[in-house]
């Protein structure tokens, strides 16, 4: 499996990096840590490049390279990098030798074959979309954004599962909230949820929400199937069948002490684009980490 972790700054990306690496470790996945430096206005592009050359003479790196160096040190301290690669240190010159708009440092990992640090420049969604398309990642992990549009664009355009890390408190015990229904993505979501729960010894709440009092066969079957998978995997779970608006119920049930895992909507993309979808709304309104499995 391949995981992509998108980071932006030392100040805000520490939880994203920590959760991303932990989850990747649980899945034994290869990891790429990407820092996307925003593309400046074309009017100032050449002047900024000139200023950066001037800064390099004074041993200052552009902020995105500093962020990746911080990520490298985090990997080093957390012993994620194989020891033989540590001697070379952080080879920032490899980030400057860009192929197109992508520079990279490849390191052998302790829990996977390779960990890659990459530098991209451009618009965040466009850069992540291109990265995911070119390298076929299974999961993209990213911190929460205050921009409402970001959740929409992530769901709509990124071709991988998406884990959005928000408001996480590492000192608290978490549970997995597995939201299941009769959509196509549910089964994969159950498998991902089980793997996360097993890796961290978390208990699972299997939640099915119906708008009507009566649960249809599809919903009932999905919940039964999820519970069977959990039993087979020997993961402790609690089954919930609640009535109400799905997004509200999921948010209320999750509170701030769950990791929500749910499948992507099976609606057609045009409908999703204009009307949104449940996963998108959950992503926007929840106050805890959310994994949308595609």
């Amino acid at each position: 499996m391949r995981f992509l972790i998108a980071i932006a700054s030392k100040k805000y990306s520490e939880p994203t990096l920590r959760v991303g690496l932990d989850v990747a470790k649980a899945f034994q996945a290869c990891v790429t840590i990407a820092c996307v430096s925003p593309k400046p206005s074309s009017f100032a592009q050449d002047q900024i490049r000139l200023a950066q050359e001037s800064m390099e003479r004074w041993d200052f790196e552009q902020p995105a390279i500093n962020v990746l160096e911080w990520a490298y040190n985090y990997l080093k301290e957390g012993q994620f990098i194989a020891e033989e690669a540590l001697e070379k240190g952080f080879q920032k010159r490899l980030l400057s030798k860009r192929a197109g708009s992508r520079g990279s440092i490849v390191l052998p990992g302790q829990f996977c074959d390779r960990i890659e640090l990459i530098l991209r420049s451009g618009r965040i969604i466009e850069s992540l979309r291109n990265e995911v398309r070119q390298n076929e990642y299974d999961v993209t992990i990213i911190g929460a954004s205050q921009k409402r549009r970001m959740a929409h664009d992530l769901i709509q355009y990124i071709d991988s599962s998406i884990l959005v890390v928000k408001q996480i408190d590492f000192s608290r015990p978490y549970r997995v909230l597995l939201a299941v229904d009769d959509s196509r993505g549910t089964l994969k979501a159950v498998k991902y949820g089980i793997q996360i729960a097993k890796a961290y010894g978390l208990k699972v709440d299997v939640l099915t929400v119906s708008k009507r009092q009566r649960f249809g066969a599809g919903y009932q079957g999905a919940s039964d199937r999820a519970c069977r998978y959990l039993e087979n995997a020997r993961v402790k779970y609690n089954r919930l069948m609640l009535v109400g608006d799905p997004v509200t119920v999921i948010d209320e049930s999750a509170g701030d002490n769950h990791i929500i895992v749910m499948g992507d909507s099976s609606q057609n993309p045009i409908k999703k684009f204009f009307l949104g979808s449940k996963p998108q709304e959950v992503l926007e309104t929840s106050v805890c980490p959310v994994l949308i499995v595609k």
């Binding site: 400046p40 206005s41 100032a44 900024i48 200023a51 950066q52 800064m55 200052f60 902020p63």
Partner: peptide, 9 residues
Amino acid sequence: PACAIIYSS
């Protein structure tokens, strides 16, 4: 450009 330059730091 002067603002963009200091922001890029």
